[in-house]
Amino acid sequence: MPEVSKMKKPDVKVVLLGDMNVGKTSLLHRYTERKFKDTISTVGGAFFLKQWGPYNISIWDTAGREQFHGLGSMYCRGAAAVILTYDVTNWQSLAELEERFLSLTDTANHDCIYAVVGNKADLTDPKAQLSQVSDMASEDRSDYEESIEPQVLSACPTPPASPASLSGITLHKQVTLEDAVALYGRILRYKGLEEKSSLPAEKMCFETSAKTGYNVDTLFEALFDLVLPSILRKRNENQESPTVDLEECRGGSSNKRARSACC
């Protein structure tokens, strides 16, 4: 099994950022556990390891609360991809991305890629109420909606999914995809990147629903595919990540133990 323990070392880092209650934890949970459930507000940041083919992708699910704002840049250090998440029913959550979260990404890799993701699309978009996930059948309403054309939208107000939606839940879509695309353009400018040479906005802006699973896999898989070059390059560069740095400076006998266990 040395193969497996070696695999445990993360190759690349993806960070989820965004205001509280936009559904970062739910998105990740939908992707990793194929389920939607009530989450409670994340404290600090939670670290996950995702196997992607032969690679290990570390995902940091950060707390959106202002309380933990100061930690954001630490979580972003050396990130290869940042998922900036907002809530399509909450304009402020998009504005916060620019005001509060964009500056945190200063510590990310210089070639970091950015995705702008509008979650809770099921609340505003009929097509997002269709689950894309096959195992959804058992879950609420999806059967029903798959058989009938989904115009149930305003008829049955979706119950507040997460601790979310304290900020007034309207089925009114406050943020359009165009807004997100515009934000993406501003991000590139902030980063001093050429729009021409960067990934096109239409590839990097998503609308998702953690509740139904709509676009969630698409999002993560597209990102993972995009960060692969970064992984490969990093491997060639002999792994100069902060992870390894810290490990290298550790001395003492305990270090040897860890090594022998690893290799």
């Binding site: 949970h29 990793t32 996950f48």
Partner: peptide
């Protein structure tokens, strides 16, 4: 109490001040 109250999503490794 912190651990008890934040255990809803238990799969990850949490790092928090």
């Amino acid at each position: 109490n912190l651990i008890g109250a934040s255990s809803a999503f238990q799969a990850g490794e949490i790092w928090t001040p």
